[in-house]
Design a protein around this nucleic acid. Sequence first.
DNA 1: TACTACAATGCATAATTATGCAATATTTAT
DNA 2: ATAAATATTGCATAATTATGCATTGTAGTA
Lengths: 155, 155
Amino acid sequence: MKERHNRLSTIKDLIKNNRIDSQDTLLELLKEEGFEVTQATLSRDLKMLKVGKISDGWSGYYYSLPESDFISESEKSYIQDVRRGIISIEFSANIGVIKTRPGHANSVCFALDVLALPEILGSIAGDDTIFIILREGMTKEDLLESFQTRIPEVN
Amino acid sequence: MKERHNRLSTIKDLIKNNRIDSQDTLLELLKEEGFEVTQATLSRDLKMLKVGKISDGWSGYYYSLPESDFISESEKSYIQDVRRGIISIEFSANIGVIKTRPGHANSVCFALDVLALPEILGSIAGDDTIFIILREGMTKEDLLESFQTRIPEVN
DNA sequence: TACTACAATGCATAATTATGCAATATTTAT
DNA sequence: ATAAATATTGCATAATTATGCATTGTAGTA
């Protein structure tokens, strides 16, 4: 069971870091990582991982992880904006007050909009301060947890 | 030849609008659209179209178009910002003056940044006006054409 | 501890897809 | 107009992948 978890994780890494054209290729790479399984098991693993097999258009095919396993480049950029801009977050009831570096409130606010965290109903930016309104039914803990997940190192 | 072009286009539509689990299924749908080809030809078509076969995680598999065939949701959002915000565009040499609805210049300007039109070297926003600088070698016609392509209904 | 229920796995093979090759169709060059 | 070059296609089948079934492994419960 735990073995499978490790194997799935390894499969993801291998697919991310190699151009894998067939399950046989992947089986060999897995073997090198210490996992001995049959093609049948691997097929089931790939299914569970939502791995797709994609054509490059002319020369061949390769396996690819689902999009959700990659954060898009623009999303990374917004996450960076948020990480570099935010100084502190404090709450008063359902209003959160985010202090940012001077002049950064707008871009951080915009980034939060784009990231569309479900816990945030709305936000408004000054120069170095953002007010955010928690969505009904959401707590500050929900939002902080969402931050931890989506935007590591911001608490 | 032209026949193939039409067929590829039809294949894309069918994949977009149906959950297709096998090439046989797609062959049948193509037949209904008046295209009679073999599985071999379809496999080559799908390869050329960079179509992938993806797992949904547990119940089965389906064909999917490459990402570039879909405009991302956030890009759609920016396109909307631009479409709804812009009132007029006029040029003086290599400077374009965009009039927007009041208070919308910033978001339209930001959206144009994100959309990264190659014709725009830079832009700066006021409240309801944006100045854009054409990249060297680009004309206002180039930009207007780019608008037509990327942002329909904005001239 | 023993039993039950569920998850994981391999074997064998069915299902699905990709490809080599030859033929045909289309485009390009003369 | 004709020949050469290139693209497309079907046939047959090789390659690849998915799955039914039985077995094994694991977790949960009495």
